[in-house]
């Protein structure tokens, strides 16, 4: 048990919910992408809190790999946004209906 554990976890939950709300409400693809990063940050805080509470490094490694995946995701995602902008002239997510039927 860490001191102030519930406060850390509350901040983690608040950040996660703010990120999820932004991902739902905004339609600019880059802002949605940043909101997903906020969700990842919230989950990471929870991981590190439990890692410290349990005297274990597993949570820290999980955050490490989350960072690696987020970096790869940023590279590929922004390249896709660039491509969509070139084809459509905007990155409004409502216009990305190529795979919708």
């Amino acid at each position: 048990m860490v001191d102030n554990q519930s406060i850390y976890l509350t901040f983690a939950v608040i950040l996660f919910v703010i990120g999820a709300a932004g991902a739902i409400c905004r339609r600019n693809a880059i802002v949605v992408f940043m909101c997903i990063e906020i969700m990842l940050a919230g989950v990471s805080i929870a991981f590190v809190t439990f890692s410290r509470a349990n005297h274990s490094l597993d949570g820290i490694f999980m955050v490490l790999f989350v960072m690696a995946v987020a970096a790869a995701e940023a590279a590929v995602g922004l390249a896709i946004f660039l491509l969509m902008y070139r084809k459509q002239g905007s990155i409004d997510l409502d216009k990305f209906n190529l795979l919708k039927w």
């Binding site: 860490v2 850390y8 880059i30 992408f33 940043m34 990063e37 940050a41 805080i45 590190v48 809190t49 890692s51 410290r52 820290i60 955050v63 490490l64 960072m67 987020a70 970096a71 940023a74 590279a75 922004l78 946004f81 660039l82």
Partner: peptide, 27 residues
């Protein structure tokens, strides 16, 4: 504050540095 100093350094370098630079470039 959670005694994960190594992770804090990575957070600043990878997230606040590299990924945000990517995003600002794209914008």
């Amino acid at each position: 504050l959670l005694h994960a100093q190594f992770l804090a350094m990575l957070q600043v370098i990878v997230y606040a540095g590299a990924i945000m630079m990517f995003i600002v470039y794209a914008i």
